[in-house]
């Protein structure tokens, strides 16, 4: 009996020492005790694939692919006729809403109604995606400028104040010089919301009392 307990204690000690406590940091893949159907041979988002030579599961579109997406046409369309959706709302239609261009120049004006909800959405997306570089007030003084990045655009430069909305839209989608594009991260509708918010930031910084109605000016005093 003595030998049994000695052997038993040795085994327990060995198990505890090798296996460690719960939560122990380890680089070994978690062991799956009953692996039935845990890993099915299907391609999930962002996974590897042994089928394709480059090993990448999610494929890129073949050049010339025609997008078949569809948005609800009622959603888009501003007050000017050029802002109306070109075709019946195909997601990649070459119209103002999707490209920021009217004909071959940058268009101006929001192709979506400028509501308080749009502003809120724009602020939300701006804080996530742009504030890190352009700063909370759009002055180009975000966190990255403290890590030696010079030349981040200041929205209060006259050049950008005068810039057409469509060009700002295009900068968000495709980038400009050292700023890379955010087209992959921000949906088309959200890009317009951000444009609206960038305009609001400019107004907040450069607005003058003369922009207000006489009643509002009276309230200032």
């Amino acid at each position: 009996m003595k030998y049994f307990f000695l052997a038993f204690a040795a085994v327990v000690l060995a198990v505890v020492l090798i296996a460690g406590p719960r939560g122990y940091k380890s680089t070994n893949r978690p062991f799956e005790f009953f692996p039935d159907m845990d890993r099915q041979p299907k391609v999930k988002a962002q996974t590897e694939s042994v089928f394709f030579a480059d090993g990448i599961g999610p494929r890129q579109a073949v050049p010339g692919t025609v997008p078949l997406g569809w948005d609800i046409p009622a959603k888009a369309g501003g007050d000017k006729p050029e802002m109306q959706r070109a075709t019946n709302g195909y997601t990649a239609a070459p119209d103002y809403f999707n490209t920021g261009k009217m004909g071959d120049r940058w268009g101006d004006g929001l192709p979506v109604p400028a509501t308080a909800a749009l502003m809120k959405r724009g602020q939300d997306r701006y804080v996530i995606n742009c504030q890190i570089c352009h700063g909370a007030n759009g002055g180009g003084n975000g966190v990255t400028s403290k890590y030696g990045w010079v030349g981040i655009a200041n929205y209060h430069d006259q050049r950008i104040v005068d810039m057409a909305d469509g060009e700002i839209f295009n900068t968000i989608a495709n980038g400009k010089n050292t700023m890379y594009g955010y087209g992959g991260n921000i949906t088309v509708a959200d890009r317009w919301a951000i444009v609206a918010y960038v305009r609001a930031l400019q107004k907040a910084q450069l607005g003058r009392p003369s922009d207000l109605t006489p009643e509002q000016q009276a309230n200032l005093k």
């Binding site: 296996a19 719960r22 940091k25 380890s26 680089t27 893949r29 005790f33």
Partner: peptide, 28 residues
Amino acid sequence: AGGVLFISVIAGMTYYFTPKYTRVGYQP
């Protein structure tokens, strides 16, 4: 001896055969 073995195997399984042990702390 059988009882001790039985109880310790059960205790070991409840402690180790769960994602609380297998997954928590996985840091590749």
